[in-house]
Amino acid sequence: MARILIAEDEDTLRNLVVRALTQDGHDVVEAADGAAALDILGRQRGQFDLLLTDIRMPLMDGIALALSAARDYPDLVILLMTAYADQRERAHGLESLIHDVITKPFTLAEIKVAVQEALDSRNKA
């Protein structure tokens, strides 16, 4: 299965998504904010198949994280999450760098499908 890095500042949601994706057989690493995720990416030399990140987080938001990750690890598939329309608008124009933006709230089935679609896009590239 895939190696996935999740950056989400909301503990409950992060834990839920980590558990769901782990049950699907993925190797999941978690970070509570963008700065921590960027640190993990650097220490692991970008050895992830997917970055799943919230847009709105403290220290470093998901847009800044996505821009840095895409620059340093161009083969990394990036999937953004947000509950805010204005944050979704901020992601507009990043289509060449990100796979998609998922709107919160979502069901576990929806996030699993979105993750699988993002991973499948990597295999087609």
Results as ranks from 00 to 15, higher is better:
I6M: 03
D9Y: 05
D9H: 10
E10S: 11
D11H: 03
T12Y: 13
V18M: 06
V18E: 12
R19G: 06
A20R: 09
L21K: 05
G25E: 08
D27G: 01
V28W: 14
V29P: 00
V29W: 04
V29E: 07
E30M: 13
D33T: 10
D33C: 13
A37C: 09
D39W: 03
D39Y: 06
I40C: 07
G42S: 12
R43H: 13
Q44S: 02
R45W: 02
G46W: 03
G46A: 06
F48T: 00
F48K: 00
L51A: 02
L51Q: 00
I55V: 14
R56T: 14
M60A: 08
D61K: 07
G62D: 09
I63W: 03
A64M: 12
L65D: 08
A66E: 06
L67P: 02
A69N: 05
R71G: 04
R71S: 12
D72F: 10
Y73M: 03
Y73P: 02
P74K: 02
V77G: 04
I78D: 00
L79D: 03
L79S: 04
L79F: 01
L79K: 02
L80N: 08
T82Y: 14
T82Q: 14
A83N: 08
R88G: 14
E89F: 11
E89W: 08
R90M: 14
E95Q: 15
I98F: 00
H99L: 08
V101R: 07
V101S: 05
I102H: 06
K104Q: 13
K104I: 14
F106T: 01
T107S: 15
L108R: 08
A109V: 15
E110K: 08
I111K: 10
I111F: 09
I111W: 09
K112C: 12
V113R: 15
V113E: 15
V113S: 15
A114G: 15
V115G: 01
Q116R: 11
A118H: 12
L119S: 09
D120P: 00
R122E: 04
R122C: 01
N123P: 01
N123M: 09
N123K: 09
K124R: 11
K124E: 08
K124C: 04
A125P: 08
A125W: 07
